[in-house]
Amino acid sequence: MNRDEILKALAHPTRLDMLNWLKEPEKHFTQEHPFEMGVCASGFERNCGLSQSAVSAHLATLARAELVTSRRVGQWIFYKRNEETIAVFLKSLSDL
């Protein structure tokens, strides 16, 4: 876990929204695939109102910080929260 990378990722409100939406994806997204696979990147575009490239950049930042995991299925990429990294990060804050 890289705390600095995580803090940078969390510094943008859109990325915070993305993480919050992923906490309960069925409330924030509609998609044909089961949410157990994750949320398709296109779902974020609809929620954010941002371009595909901007959404991809935000998701890449979250992935670099290991706050989300990604999984490619055919032409789609699905994202899920990385609860393990989030828990370790939150614990590290309480240890300060």
Rank of each mutant, 00 (worst) to 15 (best):
G43I: 00
E26L: 05
I77K: 00
G74F: 08
T61C: 01
A60S: 04
L50M: 08
A63G: 04
V39P: 09
M18Y: 13
W21Y: 15
Q52N: 12
K80N: 12
H58M: 02
V39H: 03
R64H: 15
S53R: 01
C48L: 01
L67V: 01
P25Q: 03
L22Y: 10
A65Y: 03
G38F: 03
H33G: 03
R64A: 09
S70Y: 05
L67W: 00
S56Y: 00
P25N: 07
G43R: 09
F78D: 11
V55T: 13
A41L: 08
L59S: 09
T61S: 02
L19D: 05
S42N: 13
M18S: 04
E66D: 12
P34G: 08
K27F: 04
H28R: 00
L50C: 06
K23D: 07
S53E: 05
Y79S: 10
Q75D: 15
T30M: 10
E24C: 04
V73Q: 06
Q31Y: 15
L19H: 06
V68D: 03
L62K: 08
H33Q: 06
M18P: 13
I77R: 03
W76F: 04
H33N: 04
S51T: 01
G74N: 05
W21C: 10
F35P: 14
K27D: 10
S42W: 15
D17P: 05
E36F: 04
E66S: 14
E24N: 11
V55H: 02
L19M: 09
T30V: 06
S56G: 01
F78M: 08
H33T: 03
K27C: 09
A63T: 11
E26M: 12
K23M: 08
E66T: 15
T30H: 11
E32Y: 13
H58A: 05
G74K: 06
G43F: 01
F29A: 03
A57D: 07
S56D: 01
A60E: 07
G74D: 07
R64Y: 11
A57E: 09
L19A: 04
F78E: 13
L50D: 07
W76A: 05
L22M: 06
A60G: 08
E66I: 07
V73M: 02
L50H: 02
Q52H: 04
Q75Y: 12
A41I: 09
Y79G: 12
K80E: 12
C48P: 01
M18D: 07
G38T: 07
G49F: 13
K80G: 11
L22Q: 13
E26I: 08
L19Y: 13
A63L: 08
G49Y: 15
W76D: 06
P34R: 09
S51H: 01
Q75G: 11
H58C: 07
W21R: 04
A57Y: 03
R72N: 00
G74V: 10
H28E: 00
I77M: 06
